[in-house]
Simulated assay, not measured.
Amino acid sequence: MPTVIFHKNGSAYEGEVRPNTNLVVRAGIKQFPFPHLSYGCGMGKCAKCTCKVLAGAENLGTPNWKEKKQLGDKLDQGYRLACQLWIQHDVELVQEDPPGA
Rank of each mutant, 00 (worst) to 15 (best):
L75H: 00
L54T: 01
F6D: 04
E14Y: 08
D97C: 05
A12W: 02
G100W: 14
N64L: 04
C49G: 08
C51P: 11
Y79F: 13
W86Q: 13
D97T: 02
K52S: 10
D90R: 03
E58C: 02
L54W: 08
G61E: 12
F34D: 15
K69G: 07
P63S: 03
S11Q: 13
A82R: 02
A101W: 15
P35Q: 04
K66H: 11
L85A: 09
P33F: 11
G100N: 11
M1I: 14
Q77K: 13
L85W: 03
V4F: 03
G10W: 12
E16I: 14
G44D: 02
L23I: 05
W65R: 08
G42I: 00
V17T: 06
K66G: 07
S11T: 13
E58N: 08
N9Q: 14
Q84A: 09
H89F: 00
Q70C: 06
L85K: 03
W86H: 10
V17P: 01
Y79H: 12
T21P: 01
C46A: 01
G10M: 12
K30M: 12
G56I: 07
V53S: 13
Q88R: 12
C51G: 11
G42Y: 00
A82Y: 03
E67P: 09
G42A: 01
V94N: 06
